[in-house]
Design a protein around this nucleic acid. Structure first.
Lengths: 153, 153
DNA sequence: GCTTCATGTAACTTCATATGTTACATAAGG
DNA sequence: CCTTATGTAACATATGAAGTTACATGAAGC
């Protein structure tokens, strides 16, 4: 199962934007994420609709945060991405009339639902500000300069 | 994200085997699951190695349960399948040296790990016997005959 | 023995989807 | 009006589950 890394990617981008003064272009963010500018725009489009970021065209344009990091939880970002399925496993739906399948699916669904609920609750507890604070803690722990550590490549 | 339905499929097959007197051939199980016999064999191969089922070739051959349903939990089956990833979401690993990515991944990993642990715990609480009991309860609730309800098609 | 029925397995195709790329339209500075 | 940026469609690629075909292996019945 290939795992969806969009949530991880978006959070990465948003934190980089927070460290960036002024609008950050898709190209700059793409370089930092070793990906393509179009991928950045595609991911950010959903966030813009939800009001988490703003975009501006033309000279001096790019992406800026529209809210304080303390107001955004990981759950918010997950929702803004369209709530992609969290679990890699699902039920067969070939024969929903089969009572055996119903028994199996009912049991699995319960376990799956509980796990999803816990995960969503955990994501709701963490703000981007907390992640940013963790980042800065790691930064000082390494005693490196911001610009140096900021580079990926 | 396409979801892996092997666990659901295997449980379905095992419960059908429990209702089946004598060895069930891959072809019979495949028909009940509306899939291909080879898919059945592929999935069952792992279970055989773990001692949950036996297979016999030739006339009168097929698959039989090697243990009591009460001794097998959903977690056991999950393990026998090779513990495929439970979560559909993962971390980017493009720039593991990036402190921003480290902060993001640490937070996500924690949430993911908690959810996985809960799910595995839940799976460990449910035995195949419990699922079978649920199936039989549904059967009597519908007041149908076993042979009729057993058919998918 | 030989035929038949079944599993065992490799190799291939198909399908879904995240990800990456190209191309071009649109809008805002200068 | 040229440059810079986003916006988006269209296409390409990669991965992995699921399905299929083909053939080998082994056990029962004749």
């Amino acid at each position: 199962m290939k795992r969806d890394s969009r949530l991880s990617g978006v959070l990465h981008v948003l934190l980089h934007m927070a460290e960036h003064s002024g609008p950050a272009t898709s190209e700059v963010l793409a370089k930092a994420m070793s990906t393509n500018p179009v991928v950045i725009r595609r991911i950010m489009a959903g966030l813009r609709e939800q009001g988490y970021v703003r975009s501006e065209k033309g000279h001096g344009g790019g992406w800026t945060l529209a809210r304080d990091l303390a107001e955004i939880t990981l759950r918010d970002i997950y929702d803004a991405l369209g709530r992609p399925s969290l679990l890699a496993m699902g039920n067969r739906t070939e024969a929903p009339g089969c009572l055996v399948e119903q028994a199996v699916n009912t049991a699995l669904d319960k376990a799956f639902h509980d796990a999803e609920a816990l995960l969503l609750a955990r994501l709701g507890e963490v703000t981007l500000a907390a992640l940013s604070a963790d980042f800065h803690a790691r930064l000082t722990a390494r005693s490196g300069s911001l610009t140096t550590e900021f580079d990926h490549a």
